[in-house]
Design a binder for these strands. Structure first.
Length: 479
RNA sequence: GUCCCCGUCGUCUAGCCAGGUCCAGGACACGGGCCUUUCACGCCCGUAACAGGGGUUCAAAUCCCCUCGGGGACGCCA
């Protein structure tokens, strides 16, 4: 029988990192086994479900490269299916109706808790027999009856056998008084109806599993395989949430992460293949299996994700990177930059010192912006405030102006000559030029940078810096 | 409180199922060094863990028991 798995988010927020990882595991499992990956939107909670979230989740999945083969199915469009199975369940005598209000029920459950009793049909009969037959003006809920003795157990593909004493599994509502089904009921109906063979989902569903097993049995369905993957934790070892910072896939996209990097990081969080850290998607499809998934929860480590992202940026070719930052580029220069070999060469130099696309863009800006919008303060103090360096900078300007072949070799020679002549360190002169050209104290090698920038733009920027220094720096005071 | 799950460097993990090759390996981060016109990259070196206690065994990170610690679920949310 061929593998069928699903990812079933509820559209009550953006795609969470934990959800994304569950989706990835399902996706990889399906691909690895040549199966089918189904997307299902669990929108039975009308109050909290929003269409925009559905769109956002779909977009995040697409961006990550998690492609589904079927769906998305919407639970809100399958009410007739659920109703059908509800009838079947009642017909088989596995459920009962209860005419009670939400408040009455809550109160009753609270009192049971105090007495350490479980909510079971027999207990209702004993304490509130009147709830078991129609009461004027009170719409009923449908409750499924759970076994009272023995064990409810299943074989988890990741954790082995998990067993629950049946008496601890309480009866639970599967159909609300407002005539809508509840989660535990619809998951089972959908998973069975969609012929899901492997339910791969978060750890937090382990305790729902016995309840769902009860429904599978009540409806006469065959049980799928279950695999519960450990959750992702924050640094405080509590389940990852907004208060730990960015948790949505979208947020990482906006922060300049490459989808492959996030994908790779998320897979490796909880799954491993020997000592290997970096995988292509094809490799993952080939190598991923549930046997490599660990049992213990994993703390999300942004530092390592950042490192991985840097690795991926470094490994990306210039065209790809150009595409990724295209939207940020000044509209009037996009097409020109897209065919400019110098710009592409610069991308190559700059990508090794960029950990995110944002940083990449920042490191590129000086190429297409006429002047730095400011000079790094510390740099000004160290390299713009010494008379000898300033004089050398002016002399270098003259040398460059005379230069016919504005290339690395000639530039290096000029730098060395001038720094010797003015008795300043090459380092200081290089830094002054770097500051003049980029506004920063950090950039690729200064000679290659200048060659790429070209003579005209370089001279303009240096001239501007010289003027800036003249009107902003007082050499007397600076010593 | 009840039930369930988990427990190897700060973090992700390899090793555990089929005890010895593990005074525990890799990666991120961190510290030191090399390279060097800056910053990165790269290379070299280093710090750092089997939660604790009992067993079983010639031998335990690996098997058994207990304790402790962490997490999750107990909704007419999903």
């Amino acid at each position: 029988m061929s593998v069928r798995v699903r990812f079933a988010p509820s559209p009550t927020g953006y795609l969470h990192i934990g959800g994304a990882r569950t989706a990835i595991f399902n996706y990889l499992f399906a691909r690895h086994h040549g199966g089918t990956f189904i997307l299902r939107i669990e929108d039975t909670d009308v109050e909290r479900s929003k269409k925009e979230y559905t769109e956002a989740i779909l977009n995040s999945l697409r961006w990550l490269g998690v492609e589904w083969d079927e769906g998305p199915y919407f639970q809100s469009e399958r009410m007739n299916v659920y109703r059908e199975y509800l009838d079947l369940l009642i017909k088989r005598g596995k459920g009962y109706q209860c005419w009670c209000t939400p408040d009455e029920l809550t109160l009753f459950k609270d009192s049971l808790k105090k007495e350490k009793k479980k909510f079971k049909r027999s207990v209702v009969e004993e304490n509130h027999p009147e709830w078991l037959s129609p009461r004027e003006g009170i719409p009923p809920v449908v409750i499924v009856e759970t076994p009272t003795e023995g064990k409810i157990y299943y074989d988890d593909l990741i954790r082995g056998t998990i067993s629950f004493p049946a008496e601890d599994v309480e009866d639970f509502i599967i159909w609300r008084s407002n005539d809508t089904p509840t989660y535990n009921f619809v998951v089972v109906v959908d998973d069975a109806d969609m012929k899901i063979t492997h339910v791969i989902r978060g750890d937090d569903h382990i305790s729902n599993t016995p309840k769902q097993i009860v429904i599978y049995r009540a409806l006469g369905f065959e049980l799928p395989h279950f695999a519960h993957v450990p959750m992702i934790l924050g640094p405080d070892k509590k389940r990852l949430s907004k208060r730990h910072g960015a948790t949505s896939v979208e947020a990482y996209r906006e922060a300049g992460y490459l989808p492959e990097a996030l994908f790779n990081y998320l897979v490796r969080l909880g799954w491993s293949y020997g000592d290997q850290e970096i995988f292509t998607k094809e490799e993952l499809i080939e190598k991923f299996d549930l046997s490599g998934v660990g049992k213990s929860p994993a703390v999300f480590n942004p530092e390592k994700l950042l490192w991985l992202n840097a690795e991926y940026i470094r490994a990306s070719d210039h065209n790809r990177l150009f595409q990724e930052i295209y939207d940020k580029l000044p509209p009037d220069q996009r097409s020109k930059l897209g065919t400019d070999p110098s710009f592409f060469k610069l991308i190559g130099l700059v990508k090794v010192r960029s950990r995110t696309l944002i940083e990449l863009y920042e490191n590129l800006r000086f190429y297409f912006e006429p002047y730095p919008d400011s000079y790094d303060e510390k740099g000004v103090r160290k390299f713009f405030s010494k008379k000898p360096v300033f004089d050398a900078l002016c002399a270098l300007y003259e040398e460059m102006d005379k230069m016919i072949h504005f290339n690395e070799e000639n530039l290096e020679k000029a730098f060395r000559d001038v720094s010797e002549r003015y008795n300043v360190k090459l380092r200081d002169l290089a830094q002054a030029v770097r500051l003049a050209v980029t506004g920063k104290t950090v950039s690729p090698g200064i000679f290659e940078t200048l060659e790429i920038l070209g003579k005209i733009r370089t001279l303009k920027k240096i001239q501007r810096a010289i003027e800036w220094i003249k009107s902003n720096v007082n050499f007397e005071n600076q010593g």
